[in-house]
Amino acid sequence: MIEETLIPKIGVVTDIRRDTPDVKTFRVVGTDGKKLFQHMPGQCAMVSIPGVGECMFSITSSPTNEEYMEFSIKKCGCVTEVIHALEVGAQITVRGPYGKNFPVEEDFKGKDLLFIAGGIGLAPLRSVINYVRHYRQNYGKVVIVYGARSKDDLVDIDEIQNEWVNEPNMEVYLTIDRPQEGWDGHVGFVPAYVKELGLDPNMTAVLCGPPIMIKFTLAGLLELGFDKSRVYTTLELRMKCGVGKCGRCNVGDKFVCKDGPVFRMTELDELPDEY
């Protein structure tokens, strides 16, 4: 019998980290203690709790991590609710990797990179940022703009403050929506902050966050002179199979699970407005 992608592998949760009040990061390995499968930054996996449901999540850890995979998951529906209730040692199912990755080995190479994320939108970017950090010599300057509702909603703040900010030739800008006690950083929405920063439009930009943030940030970037063909984002739609067969993540002639989730803005322009 040939291998069937719809039949998942068993994953063991080896660590759970609470990032924000509603985001937890889960570390997963196979039952043999090894990493379940290889992937590239931006790719996704189907995670399921049998009896509850299966959902697509982006793999947050970098491919360069040879030991395990991580998923940062926001509690927002019936499956994620159960996932959040898991304890270390729990077994779940994982299948993948699915989708197209960020062109880290092609278009990104040798370029200055700008990463803009909002809230849980950091999840897919964390994988690519850490990949770039690992192969630092292959890329130019890296600028990261990351915003969230409050300082408690910033995902992976430890890694950002302890590692990313110390990385050479890497700038990290954090912002939160409203002033908050104990926060002396920038306050304001991401799109406005991006414009304030007056970023170099020759950078290759990657956007990830809520649709409304993407919309306004993109407008801001275009104003600054960015070229749409060098702006990337990721889409999210309802998925069941992950391999372009079940039909539901269909937008125009693309399937988000198979032809995405990473899209160039110019590609999105060609798609009907239904995502």
């Binding site: 927002c76 019936c78 999210e236 739609l237 069941k240 039909g247 539901r248």
Partner: peptide, 16 residues
């Protein structure tokens, strides 16, 4: 399943 059904593309945070 049917793309004609209202829950076909329903996600936790919305429907496309």
């Amino acid at each position: 399943d049917s793309c004609m059904y209202s829950d076909f593309t329903l996600m936790a945070h919305g429907n496309s």
